[in-house]
Amino acid sequence: MTAPILEARGITKRFGGVVAVNDASLTVGKGQIVGLIGPNGSGKSTMVNLVSGELMPNEGTFLFNGTDITSLPSHRRARLGMARSFQLLRLFHSLSVEDNLLLANHMRMKASIAASIFGRSSAREEEQRARARARELLAWFDLQDFADRPVSALSIGQQRMVEIARGMMSEPSLFVLDEPAAGLSPPNVDKLIQLVRRLRDEFGVSILLVEHVMRVVRDLCDHVVVLDSGVKIAEGAPDAVVKDPVVIEAYIGTGWKRRAQG
């Protein structure tokens, strides 16, 4: 295995009396695609929010490139090179597609805010460069025709792509994808699989992939971690994990219980 880019060690998160994540650990190696799976309510989303810094854990530490980031708020983690997408799409809905991308690059801009306010040439040139890069990325995602459109004018599938393009605009070393296949049609899921692989292969981004759709996980992941009721119950290569009786029990078991209760 390569050197780790992200390490979560013994993470525990409680909401009141409920333990959402219980002593969970996981590691993402450089250049790896690691899957995080589990049935509904298993604590995946909580774990993602803990990784990205929206929630703070009660116990445990996060290391990013070897540095302790446990107490850093999300914008500081983003600056260190962590990007994320959201399960329920999140975009700046009153802004254009290009401006959405541009905002993800603000933290990389070197000219001062004052230079930007006074319209100094250094700031203007920097912004032009960022806009050019945003256009390039949009072309890469086949979205170049939508650059000036408001994001709300795009379809769900296109908005999903804008979200991923936005993540890439921040020049991340780790990209946390939170259920990127949610709400996509089967052909679009195929496109997504290819795209995520290219992100890793062409940009060298490491990826933590939270996903429901098993096909995506099996096709993409080098390594899979399974959560159930906030506890890590299995990890390993995708094909092995999917056959693990404990994992099958967790998935089918809850499904059966849910039906019985319903």
């Binding site: 929206e54 999300s74 700046f92 809905h93 802004l95 936005r166 921040s170």
Partner: peptide
């Protein structure tokens, strides 16, 4: 960006 979505603003490093 803060007006539209503060959580997202923070997540993109603002």
């Amino acid at each position: 960006a803060i007006r539209d979505d503060e959580t997202l603003a923070s997540a993109v490093g603002l």
